[in-house]
């Protein structure tokens, strides 16, 4: 546990020391702020007011921006975790001190996840702002954030796994970004495959599993889905890190 916290602290501070963390944070907040402004403006147009849509049920997963920005920032935040360590050779320092591969993987994972989740804190301002001028369904806000946390956990584990495959940050970024987009696209795929596969695609589709959260529903099925995939990805990462020693 001591090793974990020590490594975690270093990983997290490395994210704050490097410009990439700040670039990711700026892009993320700019896009989300813009989406919020856009939604408020659009939903106030006369033709939409009568639909009585909630801003936050659209903000969480209801726009194209939410998905693309999440795929982009998790890929960008996780790309250097192992790739950089292997490129610069510092992995040799880590694998020759008495720490286990599991501790290394978990510390990197939680550091990236912490950074990612802390970025969401400023978005609470939107809730406060909107709460002052309109009625906000806090249930939807809560479940939206829970869903986002689960989603971020899973995407981070995918990015971490991809980073452990390569020593190039760029390659890591591209493959995790594409893989995440492919997982999103399973939702559309289910329309063109046979009924037998449809269920599987439906179950594996992130969009499908996520859709309850913006409605204010936290379903155990989705929680199990996100957590089990996260744990599976982390398991694969540990094996991937170990496998460098077999070769």
């Amino acid at each position: 546990m001591r090793n974990f916290f020590n490594l975690y602290k270093r990983e997290l501070s490395a994210l704050y020391y490097t410009p990439i963390g700040y670039i990711v944070m700026c892009v993320f907040l700019a896009v989300l702020g813009w989406v919020f402004w856009l939604l408020v403006r659009i939903l106030n147009l006369p033709q939409y007011v009568k639909l009585n849509e909630d801003v936050f049920s659209i903000m969480f997963g209801g726009t194209f921006f939410y998905w693309i920005i999440l795929a982009g920032i998790t890929a960008a935040l996780t790309m250097r975790l192992f790739a950089e360590e292997r490129r610069s050779g510092t992995i040799e320092l880590l694998s020759t001190v008495p720490v286990t591969d599991l501790q290394i993987v978990l510390s990197k994972y939680f550091a990236a996840l912490t950074f990612l989740l802390l970025m969401w804190i400023p978005t609470l301002i939107y809730v406060i702002i909107l709460g002052r001028y309109a009625t906000v369904d806090y249930g939807v806000v809560f479940s939206g954030y829970v869903g986002t946390i689960l989603l971020c956990s899973m995407l981070t584990s995918i990015g971490l796994l991809m980073s452990s495959f390569t020593r190039s940050q760029f390659v890591s970024f591209i493959i995790s970004f594409v893989l995440i987009l492919m997982l999103f696209s399973l939702n559309f795929m289910q329309n063109i495959v046979s009924p037998f596969w449809r269920e599987l695609y439906k179950y594996l589709s992130i969009l499908e599993q996520f859709q309850d959260f913006p409605r204010g529903v936290i379903s155990s099925r989705s929680i199990v889905y996100f957590l089990s995939l996260t744990i599976f990805m982390l398991f694969c990462t540990v094996k991937s890190v170990e496998s460098h020693k077999w070769r």
């Binding site: 490594l7 501070s13 050779g89 040799e92 320092l93």
Partner: peptide, 30 residues
């Protein structure tokens, strides 16, 4: 690993850390 102090070829180090900070980090790991 508990018995070994190792200095790899080309000395890889974490570039963003300060010397004393780095050594404290390593001491804890050891």
């Amino acid at each position: 690993r508990r018995h070994i102090g190792y200095m790899p070829e080309n000395v890889p180090l974490y570039p963003e850390m300060r010397i004393n900070e780095y050594l404290r980090f390593r001491a804890k790991l050891k």
